[in-house]
Design a protein around this nucleic acid. Structure first.
Length: 498
RNA sequence: UCCUCGGUAGCUCAGAGGCAGAGCAAGCGGCUGUUAACCGCUGGGUCGUAGGUUCGAAUCCUACCCGGGGAGCCA
């Protein structure tokens, strides 16, 4: 048995493939089977003249997703996907599949999510999972090559660490336990034992967020380094992202093609320095004449597009009445596309005034909203790192800027093309007395942080770290519009199965 | 929690007070190279649920359920 991605090494040889029917077509004396085997897709051609009666008959019984073994000669043919096809001589059916719910035609999100366990077999989902795998591998490689130690932080935690977010509560032998929202505090303890460490694990947030950027269960990578200041932290984050990008671009060319990902910005992100701007600077940009111009231009573009789409609708509407059946179907398809795009354009047009208001009324000291981030990243061609946020909007454990007590030594990395925040991090407060004061100011129970405070009591050092959201990273690199397609079985508001 | 859009055949959708429709899928037949193949025929309905208005409701009204997108919050 060989795999489809090795076919080029077996040209003109006889091989056996084992897999599933992705799609099939038939005529009087030819049957085309698109076979998938997990490594790729290969068109298998069954010619009535070349096979015995049983093989021909069996080939005629196949339906979408039926499982089979098929043998034949590997032939180079540009008409076939992948450039090679199999001229079938033998065929063994493993199972004739029941009627498969996911047809080669289009489907809605709800239906696809109900059938997520099967949807994973489809090409685009297959490609996204392979990119996710490549990203995971690249992250481990990056840290392992630098002698970081991987650690697993606990999933059950006894207290709501930062006090801000809503956590999932469970019963832990009649005691309350929460599912972790971050492994950071534990990573800090391990960093004091091993110097440089990282976690790679699941994280849970019980917030009722229903957007394309949110899951209730997602995977986070949290490096934590002793003797690292904020600048070193930013350098590491930038190097890591560049390293992930070059790995994926070289290993997943085929996958990115299936996903129809335009890789221009990804390549630019590897080549160019990330833009580093302070929060204060970012606020100035948001309130600038240039930003207002960007939004005005966007409004004009959307207005024009809306007009163009409406004109097209009118024209093809006239044409439809006098056309042949196949052309009518084509027109109907285009009409659907136009309506979908119009909805998006109308939503943008509704949103832009809201964004304009949010930007023009933005006050120093507020945190950025999703739209503010989008507007910022629209003005740069590589990821943007924003650092030194107002301390008031950030977590208690972040160190203040010695040059300005109002600022926290925090940093966020924003991905371009509207993908937004993929990393949040900071230099940590290393003074015992200051940290105690912060815990008090945030009305947090000091008892719960007793062990954490010990880290500042016994050989405290400057240290830093950050958290990278895996699904948001996959979503950005794949060019997917929703994180639900970046994880095999997404857990989100209202979705617990499959 | 709030704003907004939606729920009609297995799937994707049209129908906007007056006979329940199309394409695909399924079944049968036809076609020597198909790429979401194509052509013909056949079967397929709790119009999300409950109530109301009306001679008459998929269509109008009310409540609820489910889903999409967004706000807040965040990775």
């Amino acid at each position: 048995m060989i795999y489809i991605n090795q076919l080029s090494q077996h040209e003109n040889k006889s091989v056996t493939l084992k897999g599933w029917v992705y799609n099939n077509r038939s005529s009087k004396s030819l049957i085309f089977i698109e076979l998938r085997d997990g490594t790729g897709i290969c068109q298998c051609v069954v010619s009535k003249a070349d096979v015995d009666g049983r093989v021909w008959e069996d080939a005629g019984l196949l339906r979408q997703e039926s499982s089979l073994e098929v043998s034949g000669k590997v032939v180079k043919d540009d008409r076939s996907i992948g450039g090679y096809e199999l001229h079938v001589t033998g065929l063994e059916i493993v199972q004739i599949a029941d009627e498969y719910p996911i047809t080669p035609k289009e489907h809605g999100v709800e239906f696809l999510m109900e059938n997520r366990h099967l949807w994973l077999r489809s090409q685009r989902q297959w490609a996204a999972m392979r990119v996710r795998n490549a990203i995971v591998f690249a992250i481990h490689t990056f840290f392992q090559n630098r002698e970081f130690l991987q650690l697993d932080a606990p999933i059950f935690t006894g207290n709501a660490a930062e006090g801000t977010t809503t956590l999932f509560e469970t019963d832990y032998f009649e005691e309350k336990a929460y599912l972790t929202q971050s492994g950071q505090l534990y990573a800090e303890a391990m960093a004091m034992a091993h110097g440089r460490v990282y976690t790679f694990g699941p994280t849970f947030r019980a917030e009722k967020s229903k957007t394309r950027r949110h899951l209730t269960e997602f995977w986070m990578i949290e490096p934590e380094m002793a003797y690292y200041d904020l600048d070193m932290n930013m350098d590491l984050a930038e190097e890591m992202i560049k390293s992930i990008l070059s790995e994926v671009l070289s290993k997943c060319r085929n996958e990115l093609e299936i996903l129809e990902r335009d890789t221009t910005y990804l390549k630019q992100a590897i080549k160019n320095d990330f833009h580093r701007i302070t929060y204060t600077n970012a606020v100035d940009i948001l309130k600038s004449r240039k930003t207002a111009g960007v939004l005005e231009k966007m409004t004009e573009e959307r207005d024009q597009e809306k007009q163009d789409l409406n004109n097209e609708l009118e024209e093809i509407g006239k044409e439809r009445g006098s056309e042949k059946k196949w052309r009518k179907a084509q027109i109907d398809q285009r009409v659907k596309e136009i309506y979908a795009r119009l909805d998006q354009v109308k939503e943008d047009l509704r949103n832009i005034p809201v964004w304009e208001k949010s930007v023009s009324e933005f006050k120093w000291g507020n945190d950025f909203g999703g739209s503010d981030e989008t507007i910022l990243t629209m003005q740069f061609d590589a990821p943007v790192i924003i650092h030194r946020y107002p301390a008031e909007v950030k977590a208690f454990y972040m160190k203040r800027d010695p040059a300005d007590e109002k600022l926290a030594l925090a940093m966020d990395v924003l991905a371009p093309e509207g993908y937004g925040e993929i990393i949040g991090g900071s230099q940590r407060e290393d003074s015992l007395s200051v940290l105690k004061k912060r815990i008090e100011e945030h009305n947090l129970p000091e008892d719960a942080f007793k062990w954490y405070l010990d880290l500042r009591r016994y050989g405290t050092v400057p240290h830093s770290g950050y958290g990278l959201g895996l699904e948001r990273t996959v979503s950005w690199i794949c060019g997917l519009s929703h994180v639900r397609e970046t994880i095999p079985f997404p857990r989100m508001l209202g979705r617990l199965t499959p």
